[in-house]
Write a protein that binds this DNA or RNA. Sequence first.
RNA 1: GGGCGCGUAGUCUAGUGGUUAUGACGUCACCCUGACACGGUGAAGGUCGCCAGUUCGAAUCUGGCCGCGCCCA
Length: 802
Amino acid sequence: MEVRRRLAKQGVRFEELPREEALAHVERWREEHERRIGEQTRAGGFSVDWSRYRYTKDAASARATRRAFAALYRDGLIYRGERMVNWDPRLRTAISDLEVKHREEEATLYRLRYAWADGTLGGIEVATVRPETVFGDVAVAVHPDDERYRDAIGRFVIVPLAHRRVPVIADAAVDPAFGAGALKITPRHDPTDREIAGRHPDLAEPTEIFDDSARLAGPWVPREYHGLDREAARARAAEELEREGLLVRSEKYRHSVGRSERSDAVIEPRLSTQWFVRMAPLAAPVVAAVRAGEIRIHPDRWTLTFFRWMEGIQDWCISRQVLWGHPVPVEHCRACGQANVALETVTRCERCGSTELAPDPDVLDTWFTSWLWPFAALGWPEETADLAAYYPTDLLVTGRDIMFFWVARMMMSGFRFTGKQPFSDVFFTGMLQDEAGHRMSKHLGNSPDPLDVIRDRGADAMRFALVFPTPATEDGPFGAAALDGARNFLTKVWNLARFSLGHVPAGTGPVAAAPALSGASALENRWILSRYRRVAEEVDAALSEFEPTRAATALHSFLWHDLADRYVEISKEALSGARGEALARETRATLLFVVERSLRRLHPFAPHVTEELWHALPHDGELLATATWPSPAEAPSDPAAELAMESVLEAIRLLRNLRAEEGVAAAAVTPAWIRPSGPEVAWVLSGERATIARLARVAPLELLAADAPTPEGVGSRVAPLGECYLVRPAETPAAAEALARERQKLGGLLAKTRQRLADAGFRARAPPELVRETEEKARELEERIRRIDEHMKPDASGVTST
RNA sequence: GGGCGCGUAGUCUAGUGGUUAUGACGUCACCCUGACACGGUGAAGGUCGCCAGUUCGAAUCUGGCCGCGCCCA
């Protein structure tokens, strides 16, 4: 189709080119794309075994394709026959059901009168959107129980325009509610009509009324209609019907129209001789394997869709009337008609010995080769070492749009030809959309060239943007916003590593293990190691559960917020040596460990950046790409440190918040006080007083006893942690507003909590522990509100003096 | 027409019975502090589509409705 379009731009019609020239155009196009896709794959940093590069139209693929065809034919699973197929009149080939896309479209519903053949007045009214097909009519059908037509059954009518006499027949498939309840029967161009005609063997054998391009033709079609396409013929028929008074009326009508996925031409259902694969026997073992959990589909919600299709599977039309493709490997005997299936070249008919053989004119659907991929790419049907070593494979990652075209069929062929499942897990990605929310497609031309994306933002940014923030399994926007976010994140990682490198003393060896911490170790070091372990576990769990986005999200949040924003800022003091050489050493080791191990875990998402950084750090081995995946258990889990650090971070946040509200200049350092809400908090805060003061830019920072008087001339904040006070430079309404907002929020919460406690049902049925917790929460809220009220009183805390 | 799925701040998104509803982008304010302005700090922003039901308690479970998407005919 692409070649066709390109040639059309130069004013050349593909169909009119000599065969060899047309093939050369396709081949040239193929080579260009092969090269481009190769470049894209390399630039994207995909770990591909190029030594096993294969093309589905090379000699080995041809051999596999022939072999598969022959085996299925021998087993009676391939047959040739005249069936109703989807005919693409633009490409002039049959296509499979999957290549037909149905869409609601606007049309005109014509009501035609079929006059009685015996000359009686009146007739039968038939509704159709395709009046041009009257030439192929062989009957008019009504529902057997339809009162209106009881007497009509068995009588004859005259087909309008065609002037042929056809019977009125009864068939239960007719919908009495549609139109006037009578259906024209055109067996060669409508699957339902064909079924109905099949049940009435005495009807005339219809002739074809369209040629390959769906232009009217054939003995039943009047001369003046010959050569008209469907649209033109329809217009002409409507006009002529109107003139003859046979058009009762016409109305607007929406109905579903099938179009060719490739050419967008309206499909013409057409009776034609094609090759088919019987699918039901092939589907059975696949359904069983998926049901038994031997093949798993991720995300598993698609399993249902998969089953539905598999269980209603139709035979697959595999022959195509196009130039490009593997030929149907059959030689037809001119003498006896035998179809000789050819694994190699056949010279005489296997039945009658005649040497008068004609090759089958058709080629195979490209999927008939692709469905063999998992084993054919490894050398099947030869019993190669690769096949023994790598088959069955484990994971297939692909787009959901080819679930049926490719994935389901690979499973079927796998069981059929190798007796084994081709893979154990299938991961379906969503379909990318542009930023306006339109699905990316060649047709819309809204998909960026990966090479452009890589040039602008980098291959790693492209990769990361594919999994973050929109889940890889969902349809979602892929554009500047996601790419910028990914690039910014990777820049952050780059700078983080650069900072860490500045603290690696010369001669530092590779990171063999997590630094051994002791009771004297810094809280931030215990904390970040414990956080790293948690995140490493989360990443591993997410990956093993086929949730790459969960893993990427965990790494994003850890590297940026925990490691860069918090840990690095807190550790700068220790790294400077200001807190002693022992602590500096421990902190350097911790930083290096966490950064190095995080890079390893980020590597699959951003191979280039992490590889580059890893080489700059002390390391062991040739490549990060082939380095081991470290165990999360290298780092100690330390819940106490995590809990304590939460209080420290909360204190910093409260003080910063207070600064902003009170209008303290960003660069100013101001005295502050914290009155902790309890002894545990007090203990933690006193240990980390210097850190809190430094990050919140306050000094001096004093901890107040519960009963100590409140300092004067300060702004304040009440939180679960305790109360914070800060010297304010000037009156700001922002602080008062913030306090009022907080008071209101807590008031609402308290009301809700009290209401719950007042509910007898809650006390009776909720777990006792929950009741206790709720009571505790109510008390805490009351206390906080009381304190806020105290602060809000104009004469309290020296806010204003009277 | 049948089936499947989804509706959570402007946008994307986490969250399968008790949370002060998660995060990212965007927005606003302040800040070029010696890794990073592709940055830092703080803030604002949500009747978890609507209506019933189950439950002591629902974003979460059930039913109906509305809207959207996909697959199949």
